[in-house]
Each structure stands twice: as C-alpha cells, then as structure tokens.
Amino acid sequence: MEQQTLTEHKGAPTSYGIYVLIWLALMALTAITAVVAGINLAAFTLVIALLIALVKSSLVVNVFMHVKYEDKIFKIFVAIAGGVLSVIFLLTFADVYFRR
C-alpha cells in the first residue's frame, strides 16, 4: 500500500543518458510518422500514425514522467484515465457508428 512509501523513490534512474536516448527515439518516431504519411496506405495511414503516437506517449509517460519507477498507485491512475476514456469513446460510437 502506498502509505508505507513515505520516502521518495530515490532508486529511479534519472541519468542524462537515458533521457537523451528516449529523446532520440521520439525524434526518430516523429520522422517515421511524417514519412509514412507521404506513402499512401489509405486507411492504414491514420492507424499507423496513431499507433506511433501511442508508443511515443508511453515513452514520455514511463520515462520522462517516471511512471515506470513510481508507485503502483500512479499506474492505477493512468489505467483509470485510460479506462474511462475508452468507455466514453466506445459508448459514444455506439450512437455515432450506427447513426442513419
């Protein structure tokens, strides 16, 4: 339980190197998205672009925002936000998708 974790998590690797590495990965992924957009893959273009966005954001959340090294409770928070978001989208599309 998070109550016991009063002291800060000092074990988190906050080295400059990892951050720069992640940054390079993010830049590369951005370049890939831009290039993929140039190739016409029809409907898949957006799917690929969003998948890459998902990868990028999870890199930011996990490393830059330290969720990877933080307490379990923060992971639960992220999961709750994601869960509610998907519920809202799913149910709205129950209407939008079938609308005549």
Binding site: V84, V87, I88, L91, A94, D95, Y97, F98, R99
Partner: peptide, 22 residues
Amino acid sequence: GYLVWGHHMFVAGMSQQADMVF
C-alpha cells in the same frame, strides 16, 4: 455511472443500437 448517460437521450435521435445499449 459513466456508462448510462445516453438514457437522457432516448428520443434525441440516437441510433437504435445506442438506445438499446444505454
């Protein structure tokens, strides 16, 4: 509570499928 908002909209012109789900 997040799953049922559509029941305020049964005559609002949603799709039938949404009406049923909500």
